[in-house]
Design a protein around this nucleic acid. Structure first.
Lengths: 223, 223, 223, 223
DNA sequence: TATGAATGAGGATTCATTCAT
DNA sequence: TATGAATGAATCCTCATTCAT
């Protein structure tokens, strides 16, 4: 009897988790496609084939739902970056891996990505509690902190030139974000105007970064 | 009589131009402060002390007004970049000047700047005719084209290493945009988390770019 | 086997009756505190620690539940008034007792009291079947009828002056209700503005009524 | 030219005042018929043949609209009572006039009347700012104060017996309110059950009150 | 031409009620 | 029988746009 109840409860829990996930997926899509303000709860509800009211069983408000997405996305990214940090590699290769990870993360979760940076839009900021926004920013800062640690390690290893590592970490972070966002946000960019793939742009960005950091450039070392 | 009429008409034309400018100023402020969706026509009307209805005498719709702002901003930027291109300087210094110009432009027109990139927000895209969006993107592409020309000139001058100049131009453009946007959009970033000035970040970005482009790094040349 | 089943069934019946009572108690509280419209089924379910769905096993709808409360309350009141009618007392003292009973009933069942008169609110009337409302009103009329009988008896006893007894009964009923309702409904009234206790007001009302009814006022009789 | 403008502005002002009045009328009707919570802004808008949005040009919110009605109603009543107070009549006749005025006021403004006492409903109180409720109650207290003054004057004139005049004033006020409310709120009451006209009930109430207050009853004086 | 009142479609959220477990 | 998740109609309020003056 107890077992049966447990089983039932377990299945229910699983269903609920799936439903919650379905809502998050639909919301990610909607926020991504239309932005925070223009996306309606109805869009989200339609997207996961649930009733409007059901959304509110899982999330307190549109804002709550949105913030959950951001924190979830940044959490995933931070986790991935954290894993790479543990690899036994020289700092420059580590950084390369990280930037590559970013690209992969984006390719796998393009919508996560956009959502994460939606919070910088003023109409979102206007409507989301400052406290929650700070939580998001703190999450982002932790990612930057990981970059910072790797840069510092590279300095210790004698691979990177001395520099303000924190500034450098931020520049890296914003550069990569900037490249992806601009690429990604404007569908027109992709084919019509730029005629350059995202991978090429990121590779170029990475080269820039490493060239800038390394004491010597690869060709000079090998030469 | 004709003369009188002409004079009247001239004054009227001038008044109308001023009115139009007032609306654009107020709209820039409003869109900047609240974002495209959250800013209301009433905000804009209040800001320039005109009636709501009057806005519609000068602009077909909210979206039309907005797009005019973007095109105006990008036009100014393009004009400034164009002027620098004419200077008689080596390509690397020219590029340095251009990036510096960008910083100055931002410092002088922070609101222009933000507006220019608002168009990448999906809720704006949703509401603006594709045709107008393409016009904006074309404007941006012209700016990138200017960077591209300078890079090509540097290659010819033997200052820059051979590279896909177009890709490089785009990376430059997005990097700088990315740095400014992230800095600028998040008031929290500025004091609380980054603790790095925009100037420092841009300088770091510039160094990266030039290091990456130059055949030899300055210290090697001088050494 | 039959016995067992009967026992089980009896316990079940008792449990159900208790459950029903628990729901009514919780509903009385909720309707009293928030009014008919503002009180939610969830408030009521929470209040008796049952699930929302369970409420519907015992009552067809929110309105049904509400009407049951009213009828219950008026029934209690009618029962108490009926008991007093049987006392062997002159009509004026009987009336005094009845009005006092009303006060006691209110003090013991303030929430019953409020609920009973909630039905006069138009948003309730809008939603409750006319048939049920009439049942409530008939209940109230029976209470008035008891007052009427006592007044008539007083006339026969030569204590009360001839008057339209039915009108008088109604005035008594509405006066007392009016005094209690106004006192009770407005928490502000109690301390801030009135600065008079409910008991004092009811006593004053009672004196008015008896003075009005008696052929001679007490002091004249005794004098 | 100035005159023309003034005329236009005057007409507009008048139109606006009329429109505002139309909204108030429709709202009074709607609140009266359905109660504060059940009446919808759409009901009100339909009732005065305006668009929903237009309501909000004249009143900040449903709550605001409602409170305006209450204060307006109580203000009218207070004004009327105030006028009677100035009449040169003995206190008992003055009181009789006032109670009669109340009846007339109700006959002319039955819906005003109900609105005025809607605020005692808990679901209204829940949703209206306490500050505004207190303002309403203060208005009512001013009416009671007028009654109080007349009673005191009657004591000085030797017409009324010494009594706690404030308590008495409140009892009068609540009695009359109670009679009217119960009569008025329940359409069923009127014909089906009570079979007594409002006028008769009020007259009976008035007699009660005066009998209770006077040192001697009329028949004794004349006898 | 300038105004700003009026419009009404649209959006977030609540809650009585149902129904599968 | 008891549950409580799901539903979706209903509600308040906003705001881009129109139009009579």
């Amino acid at each position: 009897m107890d077992a049966t109840r447990k089983k039932t409860s377990l299945r229910k829990q699983k269903e609920q988790a799936q439903r919650r996930e379905a809502i998050l997926n639909s919301a990610r899509e909607a926020f991504f496609d239309k932005g925070f303000m223009a996306a309606t709860i109805e869009d989200i509800a339609d997207g996961c084939e649930l009733a409007k009211g059901t959304i509110y069983l899982y999330f307190k408000s549109k804002e709550d739902l949105y913030i959950c997405l951001v924190i979830e996305g940044l959490g995933l990214l931070k986790r991935d970056l954290g894993k790479i940090r543990e690899l036994d590699l020289p700092a420059d290769l580590l950084l390369g891996e990280m930037l590559r990870l970013y690209h992969v993360f984006y390719e796998k979760n393009p919508k996560y990505f956009r959502i994460m940076f939606l919070s910088s839009q003023p109409d979102v900021r206007e409507r989301v509690k400052e406290e929650l926004l700070k939580e998001c920013l703190a999450c982002a800062a932790e990612c930057i902190q990981i970059l910072n640690e790797v840069i510092l390690r590279g300095c210790e290893e004698g691979i990177f030139r001395k520099a303000n590592s924190w500034t450098f970490a931020i520049v890296l972070w914003t550069m990569v974000n900037g490249i992806i966002m601009q690429y990604e946000q404007d569908p027109f960019y992709r084919g019509d105007i730029l005629k350059v793939s995202l991978g090429e742009m990121l590779q170029e960005g990475l080269d820039l970064a490493l060239n800038g950091l390394r004491l010597k450039r690869p060709e000079e070392v090998s030469g």
